[in-house]
Design a binder for these strands. Structure first.
Lengths: 265, 265
DNA sequence: CCTCTCGATGAATCCATCT
DNA sequence: AAGATGGATTCATCGAGAG
């Protein structure tokens, strides 16, 4: 690693890096990660480029009245082609740092779903499927179908490991978005915990757009290790706080972030 | 219409045409249809070309041992480019025969979802959203996410009619595929009935790949009219039988397939 | 009529073995 | 070598039949 982490858990189970994903990923060794789970900035919303560029993230995703609570997300105003190209870049970098057979999962919405599957494959991954999750509290619209679902696009680094002892995971989830959020597009912990179970036990989960570290929280709670990257200082701080709150027991098994699990001395 | 229908309900509420969709659609007048709901052959399955082009589409999707129960579907063996091109062709024809503001809905699976949204827009429609439906009895696979959802991609012929009195429709459905099927990929009637409710009351619903006419059944049960096209003789016969079974009351309001609803004389 | 068990099934996918 | 074939595998759900 070229840079030193913004925060580590102390027990080797989690680390958080400040900076641009592409730059930080470039400093990671090949095939050190088991699973990637991330929520890239969507660049969704308006149908035209002007709509997307005009406002920051906070005004775009939320009803008026809530603006002012959150920082704008970095890199959320690209046009469609640039977005796909940029995704392919960091997805290719994620592929390099992931072990063969490792799984990637990308949160996306209905409008960006086709772009996401394209970018995933452009980055060299094998697209394996889509896992919807339904928000029962979605806003109703007269005369049309309620926009109730978001999606997780998933794939693998080449052929999947043919482990017939691993359990089959659910094909869809049902959850309300968290009420008390630290981040404007924060995902439900219940769904995230379900998703990280594709990672091997005590495997390393990477999130190059860590935000407030829901992925990290889920990974640790499910007995996996976590490596997060985030650009915005405020979210790094909030994420470290959330992760630190559950890393309290110094007698937990000591783990090396880039190595194997080992028992405490 | 150039050709005469294979079957009509007698009361003007439903008609079934034999033949290739593109040919039959070409014989329809402009803007005579309110809503399109159809389940085209997906040409899906497998990561390799050979898996898609497998001899017999029934053998492709079902376990050996169950392959003798059904006729193969027509046109389920296109490669990716040909599938997108062919979809764009009939989708453009559907757009021509649909009234401005009319809605289209297309059943698809996870693998063909992005191609379907591309083809929809290539055909001139405005893509409006995705409605997943979950089948809890989907086949599981060890160590990966169950492939439990299929999708309905929907859009509109230009701007949507702004009818604020129309009810809001669900954003996802939950249903098991019917056990006692007439067609190998028959869709649940419950979901189909939910979907046709986007059509205006007594509006005309078109299905250019009618199969065993679940769309028609749903349309009639929800008080809409139905126009179906199907290529395979066996399915035409089964579809006519299913539709005929619910058109029993000669005192039903008399409707003209291409006109307005009118009371019986 | 209700409850329970048992068997069958799936718009798959992977892999070994052929042509 | 590339394509075709056949067998094995996952488990929630449904229907049939028994109790």
């Amino acid at each position: 690693m070229t840079s030193s982490p913004y925060w580590t858990s102390g027990d080797g189970r989690a680390a958080l890096y400040a900076g641009d994903s592409l730059a930080v990923l470039a400093g990671l060794p090949d095939q050190c990660v088991d699973t990637v789970l991330t929520d890239p900035p969507y660049s969704s919303g308006g149908a035209f480029r002007g709509d997307r560029a005009a406002q920051g993230t906070v005004a775009k995703y939320l009803d008026s009245g809530n603006t002012g609570r959150w920082r704008d997300m970095a890199g959320d105003n690209r046009d469609q082609r640039a977005y796909a190209y940029w995704c392919a870049l960091w997805l290719a970098e994620c592929l390099r740092v992931t072990r063969p057979g490792g799984v990637i999962m990308l949160w996306t919405d209905w409008r960006q779903l086709p772009t996401t599957t394209d970018a995933l494959q452009a980055g060299g991954w094998v697209w394996r499927g889509v896992v919807p999750w339904a928000k029962p509290d979605a806003r109703p619209q007269a005369g049309r179908f309620r926009n109730a679902c978001e999606y997780v696009v998933w794939g693998s680094a080449g052929a999947m490991l043919h482990d017939l002892t691993a359990p089959c995971l659910p094909g869809w989830y049902d959850a309300t978005a968290p009420r008390n959020r630290v981040h404007p597009t924060q995902k439900p912990l219940s769904v995230t915990r379900g998703l990280v179970r594709v990672a091997p036990p005590s495997g390393l989960v990477l999130d190059p757009f860590a935000g407030s570290c829901t992925t990290g929280l889920a990974a640790l709670l499910e007995g996996r290790r976590f490596l997060g990257v985030e650009l915005v200082e405020d979210y790094l701080e909030a994420g470290a706080l959330r992760l630190g709150a559950i890393i309290t027991d110094p007698d937990d098994p000591q783990l090396d972030l880039f190595g194997q699990a080992e028992a405490a001395p």
